Amino acid sequence: MAISRSRRHKEPAPRLRILSKRKRGSADAYALRRAMTEEERELWASPYLRMLSTPLRVSAVGERHLPTAFLIRLSAKRVPGPHKAIVNVVPDTLEHPAYRHQRPGSGVYIPCRGDAIRAMKEKSVERLLHHSARVQSGLEEQISHLLRVRVLQELRILVQRLRRKPWGATDAPLLRRLTRTEWKELQASGTIPQEDAAAVLVVPPVNRNPATNARPEPSMSSLPLPSAEAPSKDRRPQLPVSTLMPTTTSGAFEDDELSVILPQSKVPLYNGVALFPSPQQRAACHKSLTELQGHPNAASEETRLPEASGRVRGDEKGSHAFLLRSNAKTLLRADTVPLAVALWRLRMWEGQGWDIEGPEYLGPWGAH
């Protein structure tokens, strides 16, 4: 007998938290929901599994099904013109929903990679949005800017959530500043000694302006940077945005057959100067990281650096490296996965994380 369409025949997905009866909107809807188990929370704490669980969409470049976390959504926007309205192709859903909502109407998807813009122009993908749509010359720079803004927005949201929850600080620290000794050991060994590490960010404070002797003001605006504030070109060799480093669990299956099947576990280490070439954005990132590290709800007493008391000297002082964690316990306090995903999307946009070159394919999403 066919199941009635008006009757729920599939249980909803487990929730991270179950609201109390006072906050429930519908008793019937919440009656079938259940809280995640510890094993499910451990899987949900993985940024890579979270990205793979996003809805599938067909990429207009390559015509392949990919999770939306690996794609960039483009939509059409009408702007006033001298004679008639002009339809421009603009990026959509790149910023956090708390700052900007999705544009109404249909959209197209392209791979999250800068090379896809050139392939999109060659195939005239903009015609799928509107017959008179056009691609502006600064679309690639606009997407790159908004992806960086999304990282800053995720950082601010994480800080705000910790401020509203003054409990559980000693159980699961979310962010920890590495000491100079730990940072030197990490560089020497080439491994990250933390099993639940989601990312390592090396973000030094921005230098003062020699002319004004003032530091740049932090900015996380989605508007384009003025020409005077645009990042200057440095003659020194440019460091990569990120470098994948193995964790201490990478050699756990050396004597096992699983070492041939399972890939090596690696965690991205992000270079703040290449991650945020703009001094204003880098200053905003450093400010949020220091606030998150210094907040009493961010780290436990065992992991917080006691620099304020003046007892730490030499290599025991804090470095410019920040370790971001994500596990089953940290999820109960605050979700750091969206920040790790935003960083990984920016990494993919810069050309990293795709194992096959060429804008025609751009996938799958294996890291090299």
Rank of each mutant, 00 (worst) to 15 (best):
M120E: 01
S319H: 10
Q160L: 13
P338D: 01
T336G: 10
H83N: 08
N209V: 00
A274S: 13
Y30L: 09
V58W: 15
D196P: 12
A228C: 07
D234G: 07
S46G: 03
E95Q: 08
S250R: 07
L201K: 12
E126C: 08
Q142P: 03
V61L: 12
S59P: 12
R50S: 10
P14N: 15
A284R: 02
A274V: 03
L269G: 00
L186G: 04
A321E: 14
A13M: 02
S288V: 02
P224T: 09
A116P: 04
P231A: 05
H130W: 11
I86T: 11
W167P: 08
Y99H: 07
A35F: 12
A299H: 14
L155D: 09
T37W: 12
L147K: 06
K233C: 09
E42M: 13
P218M: 13
L43H: 10
A188P: 05
G272I: 05
P246M: 02
R73D: 01
K10W: 02
T249A: 06
S259R: 06
P364Q: 08
P55H: 02
W44I: 04
A60W: 08
I261V: 15
V58I: 15
T181K: 02
E254Y: 03
R15N: 14
P47W: 07
V206P: 01
V200A: 11
P338L: 05
K233M: 11
S222I: 06
K23R: 15
G81V: 00
A172F: 15
C285V: 01
I261N: 08
E257K: 01
E195P: 06
E360T: 13
R24L: 14
P296D: 03
K23S: 15
I261K: 15
T247S: 10
Q280P: 02
T68M: 06
T170D: 09
G168Y: 01
K21M: 08
A2S: 12
D255E: 06
G294L: 03
P277R: 09
S26M: 14
D196C: 13
Q194H: 15
A133R: 01
L66F: 13
V260P: 11
P173Y: 15
L128A: 08
A334G: 00
S319A: 13
K233N: 07
V108D: 07
P237N: 00
P359N: 11
Y109S: 03
A31I: 00
T303G: 09
P216L: 10
K84T: 08
P80M: 00
T248E: 12
P210H: 04
R333H: 13
L244D: 12
K77V: 07
E42G: 11
R163Q: 15
Y270N: 02
W349K: 00
S137Q: 10
S265G: 04
T37K: 07
E195K: 10
K77W: 04
A298K: 14
S6H: 14
R22Y: 12
S75Y: 06
L74T: 00
L346R: 05
P12G: 09
R347D: 08
R164G: 10
R15C: 15
A284L: 07
R64A: 15
L339M: 02
S75P: 04
K317P: 09
K317L: 14
K184H: 07
D115W: 10
R50H: 06
G363T: 14
Y270H: 03
N297S: 15
M120S: 05
W365T: 09
H320P: 00
L332S: 03
P237V: 00
A367I: 04
V135K: 07
G314I: 03
Y48D: 11
T249K: 04
S46Y: 06
